[in-house]
Design a protein around this nucleic acid. Structure first.
Length: 588
RNA sequence: GCAUCCGUAGUCUAAUGGAUAGAACGGAGGCCUCCGACGCCUUUAAUGCAGGUUCGAUUCCUGUCGGAUGCACCA
């Protein structure tokens, strides 16, 4: 189904052509002066030079050709040359009816659906998620859902940090605590226990302790590096222990991500490409791409047009060890081999800008990916505290994601309790849903690249541009609809009718923008556009609700038409929050 | 030092080169015998600075000031 603006533009272009002007001038946009008109066309001004004619004259000529239009109910040429447009109610009704009949509300399916891998999350094994992980998870999840909704095949990969020195540190830490474990007995040949010798909370103590010690104690660090080496070279006991660390840690990560409605299709990590590295390095050497510089193996990625410094992409450190670049490049190689994606999207901190530029250039130069595979990177800004500095706990430490979520839920629970009578258990469940909406909407409503301030009071407020406000609006609609059903109505049997007042027309016009908005949000990888849209839609709904008696309307046909409009609004809102990655309760 | 990104009401945030820069919070005021007032309506206030391109610039270009970030053996 075409986009409303395209239909309006076609009509306008016909008029420009009929009036003897270039049809390309007839582009219609949503009015930015709603007090004057609903839509506008500025083409007459752009054409003034070309035709050596006053813009208002051109606009007048075009307006005359639209006097009988079925699309516009009003076309006025105003100084200096704007065409102010009002939409025909009948035309709008037809459009919204078609939209309602379509499973995806008029969103066009992509001509060539792409296979897209999204690499997001950034979790490390054996380290708890902290607030720094929230943006990648929330933005990545939304991009996955948006692309999937639009019709692409999307694979989300958490891409764990599960193979570096950190694993050696954890293993060494475990060895210190429990040196008697069979995993450290080189002569042990039997089956290793199926039960992990530690819990997640022990694991979470072990890593920071070991990490801190290694920074002061060189001998300890050497032991950790030794352990890392033994793990990577396949020592049986170390691999078995590593497996336990992975299992315990992944179970915990799934729980935490799950509480944010974030789900990954793949739980791959750096370890998965370990065996590919020698092959890749060999390939890069043989291809003449990689050379030794200061002892390290690097690939030059400078281009002549560069204005910024572009250090070479390092493949192996001077001690021969691999690093982040190595596994990321090997992962690209593996992904091409296993999935042959059309596009890979990385969602990371924006500080990694230069790094990904290097990796992408290196992957292209060395032909790990072919020319038509797109590599994209979305860099997001920092989540700051109210002081404008990176978010910290009250005592200045790094806050765990779990605690942030917990605090938000508690705050939400408190607000729900003070505002409504609701059974304890339901209040808890609702608080959870609303808290997730508060966190995610608070994050996603900003452009990803910008830093933003995490303000729990603002995010959890039911007023203003917040997740809870959106949910409130949905719940409000649901409340009327269930009353309608109680009164014997049937939601399956209602049909849209022409707009009965300005506010219902406004709501319909807002609804009609859905397909264009979603397509644009997908192309630009911009969840904040979905947020902006549903905020406007929620406002249009509340305004409409206030102006228009619905259940109290005595005319049955009109009442049903209004109910149909509510159903459509609810469905569109719920579709949008679903792609943002949260859900609405039935009551709140 | 070099480079990248970003500077919009008191705060937070939006705007393919188009009209009087759009919202939110906060401030001021109004609306519940009526479908959820966690709502609605009115009002207050902003493009860091200086140039340039353009009929027209928050948007493009140059300079400048301010902030964030990056500049090969971390991820």
């Amino acid at each position: 189904m075409k986009k409303l603006l395209d239909l309006l533009t076609e009509e306008m272009q016909r008029a420009f052509e009929d009036a003897g002007y270039n049809r390309e001038l007839g582009r219609v946009t949503v009015s930015n002066r709603p007090d004057l008109c609903e839509y506008q066309c500025n083409g007459a001004m752009a054409g003034a030079k070309q035709y050596k004619k006053a813009p208002i004259m051109i606009a007048g000529d075009v307006a005359a050709k639209l006097a009988e239009s079925q699309v516009f109910s009003e076309v006025v040429a105003v100084a200096p040359g704007f065409l102010n447009l009002k939409l025909s109610e009948e035309f709008l009704l037809q459009f919204v009816k078609e939209m309602r009949a379509d499973e995806k509300f008029g969103l066009e399916r992509p001509a060539n659906p792409k296979k897209i891998i999204i690499d997001y999350g950034g979790a490390n094994v054996a380290k708890p998620l902290h607030v720094g992980h929230i943006r990648s998870a929330v933005i990545g999840e939304s991009l996955k859902r948006i692309n999937r909704y639009v019709g692409h095949e999307v694979i989300g990969d958490v891409h764990l940090g599960d193979w570096g020195l950190q694993m050696g540190l954890v293993i060494t830490g475990i060895q210190d605590r429990q040196p008697e474990l069979v995993y450290f007995d080189d002569h042990f040949t039997g089956e290793y226990p199926t039960e992990a010798p530690f819990t997640i909370s022990e694991l979470e103590e072990i890593y920071p302790a070991a990490s801190a010690r290694s920074k002061e104690d060189a001998a300890y660090k050497a032991r950790a590096m030794e352990a890392t080496f033994k793990l990577q070279s396949g020592v049986r006991g170390y691999r078995a222990l590593w497996r336990h660390i992975m299992n315990v840690s992944i179970a915990d990560l799934k729980k935490n991500y799950g509480s944010l409605n974030v789900e990954f299709d793949l739980w791959k990590g750096e370890s998965d490409v370990h065996d590919l590295i020698p092959e890749m390095v060999d390939y890069m050497k043989k291809g003449g791409y990689a050379y030794i510089s200061d002892g390290a193996l690097v690939v030059d990625v400078k281009e002549e047009t560069d204005t910024k410094e572009m250090p070479p992409c390092m493949i192996l450190k001077s001690d021969g060890a691999s690093l982040y670049n190595t596994t990321d490049l090997a992962t690209i190689m593996e992904r091409v081999k296993l999935y042959d994606p059309d596009e890979i999207i990385y969602v990371t901190d924006k500080r990694q800008d230069l790094y990904f530029e290097q990796v992408f250039r290196c992957a292209r130069k060395t032909k790990l990916v072919d020319a038509d595979t797109e590599l994209k990177w979305i860099g997001f800004g920092t989540m700051n505290g109210k002081d404008g500095k990176p978010f910290k706990t009250r005592d200045g430490g790094v806050m765990r994601l779990e605690n942030l979520i917990w605090e938000t839920k508690e705050e939400m629970y408190r607000k729900i309790r003070e505002g409504r009578q609701m059974p304890e258990e339901e209040a808890r469940d609702v608080a959870e849903l609303v808290a997730v909406s508060a966190l995610k909407y608070g994050d996603l409503s900003n452009q990803a690249a910008k830093d933003y301030i995490f303000d729990i009071d603002r995010f959890t407020s039911f007023e203003g541009d917040t997740g809870p406000y959106i949910l409130y609006t949905i719940v409000r609609i649901k409340s009327i609809l269930s009353k309608y059903i109680e009164q014997g109505g049937d939601l399956e049997k209602v049909t849209l009718t022409t707009a009965q007042n300005e506010s219902s027309k406004g709501l319909m016009m807002q609804l009609s923008q859905f397909n264009a908005m979603m397509q644009n949000a997908c192309e630009e990888l911009a969840p904040h556009k979905v947020c902006a849209y549903i905020y406007d839609l929620a406002n249009a709904l509340n305004h409409f609700y206030h102006e228009t008696p619905i259940l109290n309307n005595d005319n049955e046909e009109e009442r049903n038409g209004l109910i149909a409009l509510l159903v459509l609004t609810r469905d569109v809102l719920e579709t949008c929050i679903d792609v943002l990655g949260f859900r609405a309760p039935e009551r709140m």
